[in-house]
Design a binder for these strands. Structure first.
Length: 619
DNA sequence: CAGCAGGGGGCGC
DNA sequence: CGCCCCCTGCTGC
């Protein structure tokens, strides 16, 4: 297929990719970071690295997909400038913990085949620092960085037989696959990901991390009688109680994510994998979560029956694209043996769980699931068409309709966002400006008033640095974990002075996220009274009142309240009747304190008590 | 401004 | 595990 010309072009493109990534590395990590790149590049791209056999067989690590700049990103970087070297992550500010040992510790023994200690670990910052160029980042990133930049190994090889292409960067091989073989890079992701060198490197760093964290924990335990024995899932990256994010049981080794729930952790890990086990069986778009397939399906193919049993990717690939599927599954099977062999090591090693074998799972034969008719929103549920009808969507049927205008959207979130265009809940605290979207208000505040507002409190900073300092000091939020505040103002507050909420008209949209919980904690059960949404929202509101103390319950109830309100709202706005009186128009909100959030979608969080105007809460 | 996708979390089975 | 909701970012108009 490829022929000699294809192979011949491989050599030239090999260097193209190498040069490209060297240039990227140079720009991103500094000149010194390129030392070693290309050195030892074997003729024909042979990887001349040997790994300990015992570790070579361990395939249990999963790595964060390469997040280094792509070739196309390089062009953008060339045009737009490069971040300062030494930082692997954009907008990255190392987290510091004055109460912890903020120092870098390297392994006692170098990684045998690399003849290097690769990186040092800082338990206070939970970051690794490359020993060769002092770049800082998370484990997976530093591992990939070191392997691609400082290692003499070209660890990633083209999986296609007869092709000698190899690179220190997995992405280069992917690019090579696409360019030279016109192959789907994703089909070989597992081969690139299950890389012995990278696995070994990752485990080496993971061991260092575990060792340092353990020592640190022990020191703390010695100093304190508080025992921080953490039960860590056998496949989760172990995090000491002190080292985890907020003491979560499961902490991702590739990013700051941490959770107490194993299922969430497992699901989270999938985002660090390249494969997407699910797909839409109509348009073949791939997803890493089944519920995302469903959401996509209900948005894009509402007139078709949704069948959960058909979203497994292989089920279609094997039938419609035998070659690709063969490569995909074949490789998976090959790796599967190794993965199986490494099962025993999973419990002992602080590693991520093996990739799910869903890709090769045989598709279910029977399609027992009734075609989803729930695609209709509550608004349309009353005239739900027959499930047997292939096209259930009536002409002119509205799903999420606005009561102020003829607009209708595909989901309730679109409706909520659209309603902001009527309500303009984001008001400037310093002038009369109001906006439907937070980022517009942020722009306004920044450009007109030259201020940046804290997303957590009424504080208005003069600049980003002051804001960052405020966030760190007042909210203990390091900028690393902080999405760059859009500078939205805490409407109703100026210069940090809270304004009382004008009677009745309270901050619009104050039920989401932590805000909702705060409301519940404050015992603000008055979230009901949603006009015509009446009964439903009253019930929800009543529930809120008894939710004190349980954040999850509060959130659920506030959400239920919102759903109830939404239900009533939509039902009335479906065009089927006029029984629902739309909430008052924004004039009422003019004098209300407004709370802006980071994005236009988000309803402002509550800063105060009562939430009487129910439609304001959400819409 | 709206559509869409990706990710986190709650909850029920 | 599936479903749902919430939230956010990206993108096109």
């Amino acid at each position: 297929m490829e022929g000699g010309a294809g192979v011949g072009s491989v050599a030239s493109l090999t260097m193209d990719c190498e040069d490209m990534f060297k240039e990227i590395t140079k720009k991103l990590y500094g000149e010194e970071a390129t030392v070693g790149v290309g050195v030892g590049v074997g003729v024909g791209g042979v990887v001349g690295v040997e790994f300990p056999a015992a570790e070579r067989d361990l395939q249990d690590d999963e790595l964060r997909p390469e997040e280094h700049i792509t070739a196309w990103g390089l062009a953008a970087l060339m045009q737009n400038g490069f971040p300062p070297p030494g930082i692997l992550q954009a907008n990255f500010t190392p987290r510091t913990d004055p109460t912890a040992e903020d120092r870098w510790t390297a392994a006692e023994e170098p990684l045998a085949w690399a003849h290097s200690r690769v990186a040092a670990y800082n338990p206070a910052q939970r970051l690794f620092k490359c020993t060769d160029c002092e770049c800082v980042g998370f484990l997976a990133r530093v591992a990939e960085h070191w392997l691609g930049t400082h290692s003499q190994a070209r660890a990633f090889q083209c999986p296609l037989a007869g092709c000698g292409f190899a690179s220190g960067w997995a992405r280069a091989v992917r690019q090579h696959l696409a360019r030279d073989h016109h192959s789907d890079p994703a089909a070989a992701d597992h081969l690139l990901r299950d890389n012995p060198a990278l696995d070994d490197l990752t485990r080496y760093l993971q061991r260092l991390k575990t060792k340092v964290e353990t020592a640190r924990t022990e020191r703390r335990q010695t100093a304190s009688t508080v025992v921080a024995s953490t039960v860590v899932g056998e496949t989760a990256a172990p995090q000491s109680e002190s080292g985890g994010e907020g003491g979560k049981r499961y902490a991702c080794a590739a990013c700051p994510y941490a959770t107490d729930r194993r299922d969430l952790f497992t699901r989270h890990e999938n985002i660090h994998r390249d494969e997407k086990p699910f797909h839409c069986y109509l348009c073949q778009k791939q997803f890493n979560r089944a519920d995302h397939v469903k959401k996509h399906f209900l948005r894009m193919h509402r007139d078709q029956p949704y069948d959960l049993n058909r979203i497994r990717r292989t089920s279609v690939k094997s039938a419609a694209n035998g070659g690709s599927a063969a490569l995909y599954c074949g490789g998976q099977a090959g790796a599967g043996a190794v993965a199986t062999a490494s099962k025993a090591a999973d419990a002992a090693l602080p590693t991520l769980p093996p990739a799910p074998a869903a890709e090769c799972r045989a598709p279910p034969v029977k399609l027992e699931r009734t075609p989803l008719v729930k695609t209709d929103t509550p608004a349309t549920a009353t005239h739900k068409p027959s499930a047997s009808s292939p096209v259930r969507r009536k002409q002119g049927e509205r799903r999420y309709a606005c009561c102020y205008c003829a607009w209708s959207g595909v989901d309730n979130w679109c409706l909520k966002r659209h309603l902001n265009t009527h309500l303009k809940p984001f008001a400037c605290a310093l002038c009369e400006y109001k906006a439907a979207r937070a980022e517009r208000l942020a722009t306004h505040v920044h450009k007109v008033h030259n201020k940046k507002a804290c997303a957590k409190c009424p504080f208005l900073a003069d600049d980003q640095q002051q804001l960052a300092l405020h966030l760190r000091d007042a909210h203990h939020i390091e900028s690393r974990n902080l999405k760059v505040p859009t500078g939205v103002n805490r409407g109703g507050f100026a210069g940090g002075a809270p304004q009382p909420a004008p009677g009745g008209a309270v901050a619009p949209g104050a039920v989401q996220g932590a805000g909702a919980q705060a409301v519940g904690a404050a015992g603000a059960s008055g979230a009901g009274g949603a006009g015509a949404a009446g009964a439903a929202s009253s019930a929800a509101g009543a529930g809120t009142g008894g939710a004190a103390g349980a954040g999850g319950v509060r959130r659920r109830e506030s959400r239920a309240a919102g759903a109830a309100r939404l239900f009533g709202y939509l039902e009335a706005s479906d065009g089927s009747g006029d029984e629902y009186e739309p909430p008052p128009l924004p004039a009422e909100f003019g004098a209300a304190p407004h709370y802006a959030r980071d994005k236009e979608n988000a309803a402002p969080p509550p800063l105060h008590h009562a939430l009487h105007h129910d439609h304001c809460l959400r819409y």
